[in-house]
Design a protein around this nucleic acid. Structure first.
Lengths: 187, 187
DNA sequence: CTTAAATACGGAGCTATGCTCCGTTTTTCA
DNA sequence: TGAAAAACGGAGCATAGCTCCGTATTTAAG
């Protein structure tokens, strides 16, 4: 990769993060290019779609998420580790206003961090299921869907952020095996 | 209301439903006006925002949802009634591609049907809480966000639609009071 | 049947954004 | 050092949102 290309890519990521933080994930990409002091053509050459740019700006963060989760999970119950993972996922889904709605797509954008986070989630889920703490029919998509719901809910009003831990707990609780020997509802 | 105004309003609603059905909730409003054979100014005079138009086109449907829910809930447990309500809400969030993302705003658009659906949701939630089948700290907003998340998640991959009933069940299950009240497993 | 006020209509036009395309510039390396 | 390869920049076209105001239609009073 040519030196100027690398430099511009980095500038774009910094600018994109700033602009998305200030104006949300739907902000104008022209503004991003302007803030990076780069032509709009350069932006599109590096990041063909908005999701690609979003995925790239979140890449480091998702790498961190995965790494920290891996480190702490050794000393926690499988369910508690999954709960913390979900809570962090909700947190990252709220980094940019409007990011939550496309969390699923972004996580599939293929960057290293997104991949690491997906892997880690898969690992935690399977561990919890193996320990009998989560029902066998739950899939990672379901957990991601929960993160979306919680993040959306939290972004609706001012008191939202405070409710995140509580909502997270509630949903995780819903993943546990049926309390009656014979399942109560959904099979 | 002047006769021509009423006529144009009706034409707009018919056209909007057709266009949104074909091209999703983000379709061009110019197209809607064109299909209704009405000036774009007329569209905006009747419906100042996209959400207002969406709310109006969904009005009848939401009226139906509320009515049917009211009718059947008498013969169901409070939790089961709430579960069916959520499942229907997810269904209606999917009638136009992309509607789910603004479901919360649309429900607050003030039309009769949106109001009726909101009321019905509130009623079901309170009933379930009064019966001790749902935690007291859950709000209708949380349920609406679940619908949004489930619908969004379902529309993001091919296997989505099949997962709707299961996801609905999982989320509703999470709303039940903690089992800690009667002997828990851990934590 | 006027006729004037009230109401509604229409669409030109301005702004904003997405995205492409290609002439110019910078970098690389033999 | 010089030419090929790579990257840059931003003009420019397409599309959409939304406003504004001159014109047309409806209503109802006389």
């Amino acid at each position: 990769m040519r030196a100027d290309a690398r430099r511009n890519r980095d500038r774009l990521l910094v600018a994109a993060d700033a602009v998305f933080t200030e104006r949300g994930a739907d902000a104008s990409l022209n503004d991003v290019a302007k803030q990076a002091e780069v032509g709009i053509g350069t932006l599109y050459r590096h990041f063909p779609t908005r999701e690609a740019l979003l995925g790239a700006t979140c890449d480091e963060r998702f790498l961190t998420l995965a790494k920290q989760s891996r480190e702490r999970s050794a000393s926690l119950s499988a369910l508690e580790a999954l709960r913390l993972f979900l809570e962090e996922l909700v947190h990252y889904a709220g980094i940019y206003q409007g990011l939550a709605a496309s969390l699923g797509v972004v996580l599939r954008s293929g960057t290293e961090g997104c991949h690491a986070t997906t892997e880690e989630g898969q690992r935690l889920l399977q561990a919890a299921q193996h320990a009998g703490e989560v029902r066998d029919d739950i899939r990672l998509d379901d957990v991601v869907c929960m993160a979306m719901a919680i993040s959306l809910s939290a972004s609706q009003d001012a008191s939202g952020p405070k409710r995140i831990p509580r909502l997270t707990g509630i949903f995780i609780d819903g993943l546990r095996p049926p309390r009656d020997a014979r399942g109560t509802r959904h099979r």
